[in-house]
Write a protein that binds this DNA or RNA. Sequence first.
DNA 1: CGTGAATTACCCGTTTCCGGGTACTTCCGT
DNA 2: ACGGAAGTACCCGGAAACGGGTAATTCACG
Lengths: 215, 215
Amino acid sequence: MTIRLMLADDHRMFREALRGPLSAEPDMEVIAEAGTGAEVRSVLARTQPDVLLLDIALPDVSGIEIAREVTKRYPLVRILALSGHADRIYVEEMLRSGARGYVLKAAGGGELIAGIRAVASGRGFLCSEVTRLMMPQMIDDDTRSATPPLSVLGKREREVLRLLAQGKRSAEIAAMLGISSSTADVHRRNIKRKLGLFTTADLTRYAIHEGLCSS
Amino acid sequence: MTIRLMLADDHRMFREALRGPLSAEPDMEVIAEAGTGAEVRSVLARTQPDVLLLDIALPDVSGIEIAREVTKRYPLVRILALSGHADRIYVEEMLRSGARGYVLKAAGGGELIAGIRAVASGRGFLCSEVTRLMMPQMIDDDTRSATPPLSVLGKREREVLRLLAQGKRSAEIAAMLGISSSTADVHRRNIKRKLGLFTTADLTRYAIHEGLCSS
DNA sequence: CGTGAATTACCCGTTTCCGGGTACTTCCGT
DNA sequence: ACGGAAGTACCCGGAAACGGGTAATTCACG
């Protein structure tokens, strides 16, 4: 039985290069590609693969959001997340959002193929490095790994965080959002408390990391 | 005549996938690979390719720095930069550091192969999107594009910037570098003046963008 | 050798961020 | 209906950043 694949990654060179080895597998066929979240949506509206290889960092919308939508709208499509970075927050969030597996680009093609087969047959799959990363979960006290997901913040808090990371001062943020500067300060405090962060640089890095703004 | 290639990119999956199409070209041969700057150095010490395909974002050291070293130490090795991002600052800096060409990963394999051939034969090469990016050079007034390269900062200034972006306060930076907090403040002011930036968030984004720290 | 930049260090007053607290309203889930 | 969280807004004093200025030393380059 043939596994129909779809590749979603903004690096066209990568997609093209990957098509060869995957198509060479006797049980695999690449039926579609997409370079942006919008393209993923539009392709899926017409045809659904068995397995969606989804890069977590699409240029227009995060892989997490796409994974949520796809899982909800096309529950038969199995998502295998692809990432350039070993980062626990992303792994957890992607799995929570419906991905069945997670493979690092630092892994070899062999692990990718094994992952595709695993999720196609209904199992989960984590590449070996991600498995190792998730292992010390109970004892790892590293602040970085423990940074909460963006979802702990409310809508307003996310807005304020984005503007802070863009370099706006409290007074500017207040003016932009039509609130007082006291309120902007309160949001800043709440954001820091919830994320366990301290300085504006910490907040900025977090915001970039979560895709709220770009560097 | 065969062009001997070396691939330097931290994504093993990408390197593996790219090897196939490149080796299939009758005039090309992939002789080496590297996933880190350290590996690039150690491989080059033993053997030099004709063309080095160099990803600008290696995990341990920036492609800019590697390009500088390679250009100085192995002037016969021609560097073709590979990047996931169309960003003028990087393009200019890589070209200044000795790269003969620049190709985006968003480009197709065809442009990569054309680029390899061009630099192997002594010409320069920019993929079409990068060419377009460099075009409006004279009229583009966007602050973002005008942000100066990291090289405008002195050694100390770069150290201070890195620590600022990591969330350290002036007093902490002073203690860490063995200087007074006044001096740390002066460096901060000079950095802002030179880069034309204002807030700590601005500095943090810049530092991340320049590869001085991660998000 | 002279000059400019980098590095070091301080003065000052102002603004912003920060962290402690207070309180009210609205919305949503149980 | 009730409770908790989000959103709004303020009080306070202190810390840190900010931006104006001063100055000295060292180093690299023409």
